[in-house]
Design a protein around this nucleic acid. Structure first.
Lengths: 114, 114
DNA sequence: CCCAATAGTTCAGTAATATTGAACTATGGA
DNA sequence: TCCATAGTTCAATATTACTGAACTATTGGG
């Protein structure tokens, strides 16, 4: 039997934990992408979409950090693991926080593209 | 002559940098306190206000990290160094970001106090 | 079933960051 | 000039992150 995937209770999620998880540009990119794909996305597909060369162990660790911070939830779908942002729960716990961070992230990204 | 205190240009401030700087509960507390004291506050006074036992070298490093992330600006006032949040600049660069983070931080703090 | 292929996790060695006591620098006043 | 106060820098230690290699999980084919 597989080891179950665990997620922190939303009440145990902390601001500092969220900020730490999102303080890495790669993880910001992952969350940003995940929000655009409500159906969820696995690690391998994410690596391709982000166009960042990254060993799968590194991707796995990024997902783990996001999961432990309470930002994403993962579930097994056959061979792969599908993850999505815990958007509704996070919004209830910290209204506007995630949206504000991603808004700033997108502003920064659009500026860099120029 | 004293080595001048340097601050990053607001255009060089990054979201990931801000989140990293604020991913430490002590630094979140420092910024929160500084926002309430527009006149600025030095390291020693901050340590007392936060009621956190902390060596001055640690406090100095926290201030350095906040400064390098572009969150605070420091200026010498006689013997001590006064720091304040670069609120207006940050608001222009990333509208709503800092306010949103601190709002969530306060919500969390008030819940813990119960 | 058992094997192969795919997806991801865990481990362990290495690298990068953080913490903090001690020594050093800066400033103002006696 | 000397002292007291405030903060920075250094260096040793500790913590955390990165990643190749080995391992586990799931599905489909023979």
């Amino acid at each position: 039997m597989a080891r179950p995937i665990t997620h922190p209770h939303i009440d145990d999620v902390t601001v500092a934990g969220i900020l730490h998880a999102l303080s890495d540009p790669v993880r910001l990119g992952i969350v940003s992408k995940l929000l655009k794909t409500p159906a969820g996305m696995n690690c391998t597909e994410m690596t391709q979409k982000l166009k960042i060369a990254m060993p799968k162990s590194t991707c796995s660790q990024h997902y783990r950090i996001l999961r432990e911070a309470g930002l994403i939830a993962s579930e097994r779908r056959g061979v792969d693991l599908s993850s999505h942002v815990r958007a509704a729960e996070l919004e209830a716990r910290f209204p506007g926080l995630l949206a504000s961070i991603l808004k700033s992230y997108k502003k920064e990204a659009s500026r860099q593209a120029r």
